[in-house]
Amino acid sequence: MSTSNHEADSLAPGEAPDRKQGAPGGVIVLFFIVGFALSMAFGWLVFPKLLYSEKNQPFDFNHKIHMDLVDSGCESCHVFREDGTYAGVPTLAQCADCHQDVQGESKDEEVFVNEYVANEKEVPWLIYSRQPDCVFFSHAAHVKMAEMECKECHGDIGESESLKVYRENRITGYSQDIWGENIAGIRKNTWDGMKMTDCGKCHEERMGSKGPCFQCHK
């Protein structure tokens, strides 16, 4: 920094032999390490926080309580339509069968009945496992034909007592669950990610091939 100010920066390399009195090597290494550490911290700790925005569900829902009340597990509410397609999240009408009036179980139930059932307004649930529009996923093929358990892809949500925060990727607009909680993409459980590679891996193991593109793309 001791050089004359009017020497253009681009000529910096030209400052060769007589200016050997710059920072010593140790300082340079230290700076390198600091830079390295800072960016590692940013990339692993701060970046994931920045990448996802947090959204709350309209109100909380207790899967566990409901599971105890129904006979046929998940499919009691998450039904297949007559044409074989999967209906996904239950509609207001399904819930309203029981929750016509406030049963007084919880605050959330009160919100549900007063705001949605009373106004006949569908609940704008944020769906953790919503795939992109270009993806076709056949629940029938997996649940009915391959007799897979819901848990294999969706995890223990059926046992949960409250809904977790919905985290939306700010760039893609998709739920964090598609990529998986682990920012590095490391999967410990079968439900730790719902990307194409995850589907492909399972298909390859069980079907012998990842399958044709049209199997999942539309």
Partner: peptide, 21 residues
């Protein structure tokens, strides 16, 4: 043209639910 492949998919779903392949 995809030969309306989605129709194949939907037909297959129906078949699966009915226990057919």
């Amino acid at each position: 043209c995809s030969f309306c492949f989605h129709r194949y998919q939907l037909a297959m779903e129906k078949a699966y639910v009915e226990g057919r392949r």
